[in-house]
């Protein structure tokens, strides 16, 4: 049909109807419009094409495009549900909706599980955990011996891997985060509650009446 052929897209990117996005997320129409103000800022940082590429995403996260992070890459890929290397506003808004304080807990648990399931095998393996630990330690300049790292992973799997198969599956992940709610701290962004006051200029472009 060619309706979604983004590679050959000739027309400029058109903003998805805010009312549709609002109906599928926890955001109100005004919040979607305010979020669009943030989106415009991020998406025009490098190439002003109305889409967020990986470089612009990293720039917004770290204020530098020099930094590489396996986590930023993973988050970007999870946001990029159309899997075409860029984030359109619909993808951006729908993904951030999961981070809203009012978003259902199961969505946060599911997203965080997929985040840590780096290899997308349907479970979190020991190697993935070690890889992520090493990345975090390198990022923070913290030094832990291999013995200590292995010890932490052992303890974590002793607690999380209740089926003792060397993997943390989705059910085990759910039990673990319910025991340790702090593991989901990153999954809630208080900023999203105040998005209309952070970006009040949305009212000038609003398509809807109150």
């Amino acid at each position: 049909l060619g309706c979604c052929d983004t590679k050959n897209r000739k027309t400029p990117y058109r903003l998805e109807n805010p009312e549709i996005i609002a109906s599928e997320t926890v955001f109100s129409v005004s919040e979607v419009e305010a979020l669009y103000e943030l989106y415009k800022k991020i998406s025009s940082a490098v190439v002003d094409d109305g889409l967020i590429n990986k470089e612009e995403f990293q720039l917004a996260l770290f204020k530098t495009n020099k930094k590489e992070s396996i986590f930023a890459e993973r988050v970007f890929n999870l946001f990029d549900t159309k899997n075409n290397g860029v984030l359109d506003f619909g993808e951006f808004a729908r993904a951030l909706s999961i981070f809203h304080p009012d978003a259902p807990l199961n969505e946060k648990i599911d997203f965080s599980f997929r985040l840590y399931d780096l290899k997308q095998q349907g479970y979190i393996g020991r190697e993935e955990v070690k890889h992520m630990m090493l990345a975090t330690l390198a990022e923070s300049g913290m030094n832990l011996s291999d013995e200590v790292i292995e010890n932490i992973i052992d303890k974590t799997f002793e607690e999380a891997d209740t089926k003792h198969d060397g993997r943390i599956d989705k059910d085990e992940w759910e039990s673990l985060v319910l025991q340790h709610p702090s593991l989901l701290k990153n999954m809630t962004l208080q900023y999203l509650r105040d998005i209309t006051t952070t970006f009040p200029s949305f009212v000038f472009y609003s398509q809807v009446e109150d």
Binding site: L61, T136, N186
Partner: peptide
């Protein structure tokens, strides 16, 4: 020495790349 009690995911979740609040910083 103190026994290690930190969960691996607690440590990982401290990664800057997992802190999306930076997207909102001006």
């Amino acid at each position: 020495t103190k026994p290690v009690t930190m969960n691996a995911f607690e440590l990982i979740s401290r990664s800057q790349g997992l802190n999306l609040s930076n997207l909102f910083e001006k």
